[in-house]
Design a protein around this nucleic acid. Structure first.
Length: 572
DNA sequence: GCCGTTTTCGGCCCGACTGTTTTCAGTCG
């Protein structure tokens, strides 16, 4: 898939044109195309072959031609033209918070500065303050911006951000006079990573609330502090923004600050075309306020059905809401079990009994113990002899503990040659077989895909785990042809996993939606190695929702009997 | 550069904060 490559080129064209002072509308057009391409569930080459490029929103005659040129030749004339005479490092200066295209252009033109090192030097020598529109304060800000960019810049995983924001919200409730405090932004949309944290509060004295916020514990730096808005850098380098609005605007403010930006722009366009206006203070026709107390007001006034936060990415949800076709999404409470958990038998820390008790406490009907297979020595892979003992233990636990069914399973390794790490006779004895790749990540796409396909084709395999192998904090996934994997999975009736472990979240939202479109079943597993990681099911459910999945496509919303019946129709 | 239940041309989301400004431009989300 060349979707991402092309998306990145359009993004860069947008940056360069902005720097050059080109029309902001043209800049936005490129950026919109970049984003839409990034979000596409289909392969751009297929779309091109079928002459459907123009049907992509944001792709018109010009952009379509450029995509076609790139797919045919591997080059884009427009990109090569615009970047002439614009050093790459100059464009990188735009990444410094507080440095926009105007400032970058100014210092380049007047002082010849085109990289961070020289910019820092010039600031320290006080050479910027004499330029028109700049002063000593601005120099100070730029220096801070450089520092920020160097140390931060990284998005953090949702699983890390959630506990952090809960602490901040609790602190605000204790220390400030607020009526309501609620996280908004990408966190509320449950995006897999968040770049900053947005919090919304209601109260009468905005200034005091902001002051309490900016002077709270764990504040490393204050970026802005006004009557309704404050921005801080929290410990760990993540930016947290707080907005305070009156109670009467709570709904519209929550809608506005939840985003995404693209979703909101689209809504505002619709509002405008109907003579209305949306802001964080409500939805208006002229001076008349039509709504805003409740978030639903915004959508209903525009004639849309309510759109859950997880879908607000401008990936077709607005059109779906216009047509009343927003799907029923899976909910946390519908999850009846976890289908991927490790125990002491491999590299987990809990006993099967401890896991079973915790699962029952969480209200599950079943939980599958899926330890690593024999070859994975570094992960305590279970030998064939130990597997027999483990099965006996599971039986004992099932007899002893009421109200929860422990399923015997394995996370069997798909070896580099595509064969499985246990003989079929053993796999047949298990309730559930999860197969996955753990080695040979550097193999070429064709080989990796072939390995996964041979896993899918083994009649004993029920689920293929973490299909792309990516780690959010540290590793891109291996190269795999997901289209091929989806079609074989659909054909063989094998489920693919949404791995809910906070650093994996694999498959991701877009891939989930594509899998659903191709008729693939999915399954959420936490891959927990401790019982205090079982809560991450929530993260997996979030990915599923963002992938437009309902309970029907997810194995682990099924009651035990239905799941067992399905497993029975398969091998094993 | 895109797009059309106001338009094939003339629009293109809206508001807050900051710093350098005597009324606003730049930046951000």
């Amino acid at each position: 898939m060349k979707n991402r490559e092309i998306s990145e080129i359009f993004e860069k064209i947008g940056d360069i044109l902005e720097f050059k002072g080109d029309s902001s509308f043209r800049v936005n057009a490129y950026r919109k195309a970049a984003r839409v391409l990034q979000d596409l569930t289909e392969d751009i080459e297929v779309i091109h072959q079928e002459e459907r490029l123009r049907s992509i929103p944001g792709v018109g005659e010009g952009i379509a031609k450029k995509i076609a040129e790139y797919l045919a030749t591997g080059r884009m004339t427009k990109y090569e033209e615009v970047r002439k005479g614009v050093p790459d490092e100059l464009i990188r200066l735009l990444g410094i918070p507080g440095m926009g295209p105007k400032t970058v252009a100014l210092i380049y033109r007047k002082l010849g500065i085109k990289d961070i090192e020289n910019l820092e030097k010039a600031v320290k020598e006080g050479r910027l303050r004499d330029l028109p529109g700049l002063g000593a304060k601005k120099e100070e800000n730029i220096l801070r911006g450089i520092k920020l960019m160097r140390e931060a810049g990284k998005r953090i995983s949702l699983g890390v951000a959630l506990p952090l924001v809960e602490r901040i919200v609790d602190d605000l409730k204790r220390r400030a006079k607020v009526s309501q405090v609620y996280p908004a932004g990408s966190l509320r949309r449950m995006k897999e990573t968040v770049g900053d944290i947005d919090i919304l509060a209601t109260g009468t004295d905005g200034g005091r609330i902001i002051e309490a916020f900016t002077s709270g514990p764990g504040v490393r730096d204050v970026l802005a502090s006004g009557e309704t808005k404050g921005s801080i850098i929290a410990e760990g380098g993540i930016q947290v923004d707080l907005r305070v609005v009156p109670q009467s605007s709570y709904g519209s403010a929550l809608q506005y600050f939840t985003g995404s930006k693209a979703h909101n722009i689209h809504l505002r366009e619709i509002a405008k075309s109907r003579g209305m206006k949306i802001s964080e203070y409500g939805i208006f026709r002229g001076e008349q306020r039509l709504g805003g107390k409740r978030e639903e007001d915004i959508y209903s006034t525009l004639g849309l059905s309510f759109i859950p936060p997880e879908l607000r990415e401008d990936r077709g949800e607005i059109k779906a809401a216009q047509e009343g076709k927003i799907p029923q999404l899976v909910e946390d409470g519908q999850i009846k079990g976890d289908l991927h958990v490790h125990s002491k038998w491999s590299d987990g820390t809990a006993s099967i009994e401890e896991i079973a008790l915790k699962a029952r406490e969480m209200g599950y009907e079943y939980i599958a113990i899926c330890d690593h297979s024999q070859s994975l020595k570094f992960a305590g892979g279970v030998s064939i002899e130990d597997m027999a003992k483990k099965l006996e233990e599971i039986e004992r636990v099932n007899e002893k503990i009421e109200g929860i069914r422990v399923l015997s399973g394995t996370e069997v390794d798909i070896k580099t040659d595509g064969t499985l790490d246990y003989p079929d006779e053993l796999l047949e004895r298990l309730d559930l077989v999860v197969a996955a790749i753990h080695t040979g990540f550097k193999q070429p796409e064709e080989l990796i895909t072939k390995r996964i396909v041979s896993g899918l084709e083994n009649p004993n395999v029920d689920i293929v785990a973490h299909p792309t192998g990516r780690l959010i904090s540290s590793r891109e996934g291996y190269s795999v042809d997901l289209g091929k994997v989806f079609s074989v999975a659909a054909e063989m009736g094998v489920a693919l996993e949404i791995n809910a472990y906070y650093d994996r979240l694999d498959l991701n939202d877009i891939a989930c939606r594509r899998a659903k479109e191709q008729g693939v079943k999915l399954s959420i597993g936490t891959d927990a190695h401790h019982i205090d990681q079982l809560w991450m099911m929530r993260l997996g459910v979030a990915v599923a929702k963002r992938g437009w999945l309902g309970p029907e496509q997810l194995l682990n919303t099924w009651p035990l009997e239905r799941l067992l019946a399905w497993l029975k129709t398969r091998g094993g």
